[in-house]
Design a protein around this nucleic acid. Structure first.
Lengths: 252, 252
DNA sequence: ATTTGAAAGTGTTCAAAAGACACATAGCTA
DNA sequence: TAGCTATGTGTCTTTTGAACACTTTCAAAT
């Protein structure tokens, strides 16, 4: 940082926000939590976006992201990782609909806003949007059915998804999307959804079991109309040992 | 982004900067370009930092980073990748020396500054700090000998190094650090320096040659006091083909 | 009671890649 | 011409990845 140029007119004092791409998984497909930032008095069209807020004075970036998540979903201690900063001068004013919305709602609709994007993984059943007060118009959308979002939020979503794909190959963060007790099939399905490709069932099981980061709960599914599956949970201690040994590849 | 809370006192209008971790390689070890932001009239202690500047009104984040690089080194078209945003409220005021420096040089020494960090890879001989007008006090420091930098720049350096390690395993960006013509030993050494571990010579050669992204120039080193080595160059076309086929692992 | 449907669970074989390892060669220099 | 120094090369073993099909268990329907 070179802040010697004290009074250069060209310098920037933008607003700064965080935006959170919140992923969920319902044992069948991957979802993202979207809010409808339209449907206000002044702007009535639906306008899906990733939740976010301006950053406060005293909080660091992670804290701001956690606050947004907490306010929206009530959930704390969520898995959270920074995607990066998005700061195109025109990022919030590219589309007509964005400009109209900004005019309807902001004192300075042309002010530049730079955002720091995060993605996070939550256990979907822990958050039912309908039950939240904040989220009058929040809901889970299947990631594959999202094509268009406010501002550059579609780019942010894609960047989050890319990072999740990369990350899940080198750290077992996927457990944050599953219930505490889960079956190998569910885990298998999760990896297929995130990586967006089919994985051989037997090979997947062998590999994940060989990692030794699952504890077999010696407990079975009940009430399912087929052979009941063993339930497992994530074994954090073994995972710690594994990572200390310098583990860095799931190889899926 | 949820900008509905127009006039909330707690919101933030920070300054925004970019900081660039510029890596170089002299065929022997990895270097980082540092500037001495001390040695001004008002503050005379040496104070090494990564180069950076405030972001201007009209430029996007990548452009700002490129501008900093250009101004400092005169080099354009450098390989550049965002590391992420660093925004701890206290990131520039943690150390006594930082606070003193800020007081000596800034109108509002306590103003919050959020920075977007980049790392970039340059061919060291293309930039000799001594020859640059801007960089009266810029110089290359061996990465392994850097222990302490201004603000949170040491953290930023480490984050850049980590990202470089990760990235070089899935994209051959290392060529940006080598001269256009290089030997396999030089490439080998580069990978060892970045990954900070020994790699078997024969296995390395086999793997890198099998990728088919090197063109043998049928040209030899001259004047070396040992068996002269073949020279190679990076074959961009073959690399493009390779990545389109879905290549994502160097496996070192 | 029997059948049906649906997902669970399980091993082997083949091919490819990773890892370990040692000596002859070419050019400079003294 | 002897010595130094880094180059360049191949094989074997082990590990990992990929392909592949049938039996089992339970609930639900008949």
């Amino acid at each position: 940082m070179n802040l010697q140029s004290k009074n250069n007119k060209k310098e920037l004092n933008p607003s700064l926000s965080v935006d959170c791409v919140i992923f969920g998984f319902d044992l069948d497909q991957l979802y993202v939590l979207l809010i409808d930032s339209g449907s206000t008095e002044a702007y009535s069209q639906s306008r899906m976006a990733v939740p976010g807020d301006l950053i406060f004075d005293t909080e660091n970036l992670d804290e701001a992201a956690r606050r947004v998540l907490k306010e929206l979903t009530g959930i704390e201690n969520i898995y959270l990782e920074q995607i990066g900063a998005f700061g195109d001068p025109n990022r919030i004013g590219k589309k007509d609909s964005d400009r109209k919305w900004l005019e309807s709602i902001r004192a300075e609709p042309n002010a530049r806003v730079i955002t720091v994007a995060y993605y996070s993984l939550v256990r979907m059943p822990n958050f039912n949007p309908k039950a939240s007060s904040f989220a009058k118009s929040a809901g889970w959308a299947p990631v594959k059915e999202v094509f268009d979002l406010a501002f550059d939020h579609f780019d942010i979503l894609q960047a989050g998804l890319d990072q999740l794909k990369r990350k899940i190959k080198i750290q077992p963060i996927g457990f944050n999307l599953l219930p505490e007790k889960f079956t190998l099939s569910q885990l298998h399905k999760l990896y297929e959804c995130i990586l967006d490709k089919a994985l051989d069932k037997r090979n997947f099981r062998r590999k994940i079991l060989n990692l030794n980061i699952l504890t077999n709960l010696e407990e079975k599914q009940i009430g399912v109309p087929h052979k009941p599956s063993q339930l497992f949970k994530f074994n954090e201690e073994n995972y710690k040992k594994l990572s200390e040994e310098g583990f860095d590849n799931f190889g899926f």
